[in-house]
Simulated scan of single mutants.
Amino acid sequence: MPEHGGNLRDARRLYGRTDWIDLSAGLNPDWYPAPALADNAWHRLPEPDPALVEAACSYYGAPHMLAVAGTQAAIQALPRLRAPSRIVIAAPSYAEHAHHWALHGHTATQVAYDALAAAVDRCDVLVVCNPNNPTGATVPRALLLDWAGTLAERGGWLVVDEAFGDTDGANSVADCTDRPGLIVLRSVGKFFGLAGVRLGFVAAQPALLDALDELLGPWQVSGPAQQVGKAALLDRAWQRATHAALLLAGQRLRTLLAAHGVDSTGTALFQWWPEARPELFHEHMARRGIWVRLFRTGPRGIRLGLPPDEAAWTRLATALNEWTRESK
């Protein structure tokens, strides 16, 4: 199983602290305030709520969507809907994509973002995180739609993981998923900060969504998750305020890193850089109760999310000052 951020139990086991600042998962630290649940939320079987899908289609601009138990559920299931195929996955990328395509008889190859255009003609499925996790790299919308058309002509798919797309929707292709072979994944875990709810959405043509729904089976999304997710997707005032706040926080993080000689890239929710000594940086931060995401391979580097409050910003700045001094 690939490594992931958010593994605070590992941090506590290894370092024995309890005052952790978790910057490892790239989630909005000011998560959506979940409303009170209906009295029967824990009792009723969670039949799908059409109003949830309507709210998702409106928010994401997609013509058709399927609610799933986090986009991870779709990532694991989509490879099972195709016969063995040639898969190209943009790299570096969220590791679960390559992991699951390789598990189901497909030939999976990872290709750098700047070489994707040349790879379209030699694959049946192209998987792109846009913006990318962990680097923040993006592919222009027009180019994605061109690739989708090329792949569809021979029965192929373009799978676009837009889990981090809420703060910069300019390159989203969710609105075009009525086209053959174009599949978009969206998540409430990142922008809304609701990773624990396990709720995501797949946008695609109805026939593909029906096949995915049949494969995943009944009661995919819990009743409480449906209620909380619907409230978040409908709350336009919270979304507008949060969008603006995250853009400012993201710029603040990038500026703080630059002040310590770190040339980073990323999104409003995280920054990433190819740190020359990533294990040492990770250890340095962990000793100070700051848990960051370490990438040991492909490529080696550090991803760092937004601090949750001013005290955490101060602790991060202090730790970076100490790292800069010790590195000289």
Results as ranks from 00 to 15, higher is better:
313 W>P: 13
64 H>S: 14
12 R>K: 07
237 A>R: 09
36 A>C: 06
33 P>I: 02
12 R>V: 12
170 A>N: 05
271 Q>C: 15
1 M>E: 12
205 Q>N: 00
85 S>A: 15
41 A>S: 14
301 G>H: 06
131 P>F: 03
169 G>L: 00
263 D>G: 01
243 H>S: 04
193 G>Q: 10
287 R>E: 14
175 D>N: 02
84 P>A: 03
301 G>C: 10
265 T>I: 01
50 P>N: 08
237 A>V: 09
117 A>M: 01
62 A>C: 09
322 E>N: 07
1 M>V: 14
126 L>M: 13
1 M>D: 12
223 G>L: 10
26 G>T: 08
81 L>I: 11
58 S>V: 01
191 F>W: 01
130 N>Q: 05
94 Y>P: 01
282 H>R: 12
195 A>L: 13
34 A>G: 10
291 W>N: 13
110 Q>A: 02
226 Q>M: 09
9 R>E: 14
323 W>T: 03
225 A>K: 02
118 A>V: 04
286 A>R: 12
198 R>Q: 15
193 G>I: 08
75 I>L: 12
231 A>N: 09
71 T>E: 06
118 A>K: 07
117 A>D: 15
163 A>S: 14
68 V>F: 09
147 W>F: 05
283 E>R: 15
256 L>C: 07
205 Q>D: 12
155 G>Y: 05
281 F>W: 15
67 A>G: 13
172 S>L: 06
131 P>A: 02
29 P>C: 07
63 P>F: 03
316 L>G: 04
47 E>K: 12
20 W>M: 01
242 T>K: 03
27 L>C: 10
53 V>F: 00
134 P>S: 13
149 G>W: 06
226 Q>I: 04
298 G>L: 11
158 L>C: 07
154 R>S: 10
92 P>K: 01
14 L>D: 15
17 R>I: 02
177 T>S: 10
116 L>I: 01
130 N>K: 03
46 P>E: 12
77 A>Y: 08
162 E>H: 04
306 L>F: 10
259 A>G: 14
320 L>K: 04
134 P>A: 11
99 H>C: 11
181 G>H: 05
65 M>W: 02
149 G>I: 05
80 R>I: 03
292 V>R: 00
191 F>D: 03
30 D>P: 00
203 A>C: 03
269 L>A: 06
186 R>C: 04
75 I>Q: 14
15 Y>C: 08
33 P>E: 06
202 V>S: 05
226 Q>Y: 09
112 A>W: 02
250 G>N: 11
304 L>Y: 05
102 A>L: 11
126 L>F: 07
310 E>Q: 14
66 L>F: 11
175 D>M: 02
184 V>G: 02
145 L>Q: 12
328 K>L: 11
313 W>I: 08
146 D>I: 00
272 W>E: 09
60 Y>H: 13
37 L>H: 09
53 V>M: 07
124 D>Y: 05
46 P>G: 10
68 V>Y: 11
253 L>Q: 12
247 L>I: 09
256 L>H: 03
193 G>N: 08
164 F>A: 04
78 L>S: 08
293 R>F: 14
67 A>Y: 07
225 A>I: 03
38 A>T: 10
266 G>L: 02
191 F>N: 01
166 D>M: 02
230 K>S: 06
93 S>L: 03
13 R>D: 14
227 Q>N: 10
134 P>N: 12
281 F>T: 15
314 T>L: 09
269 L>D: 01
58 S>R: 15
181 G>L: 04
295 F>H: 15
324 T>P: 07
177 T>P: 12
71 T>R: 02
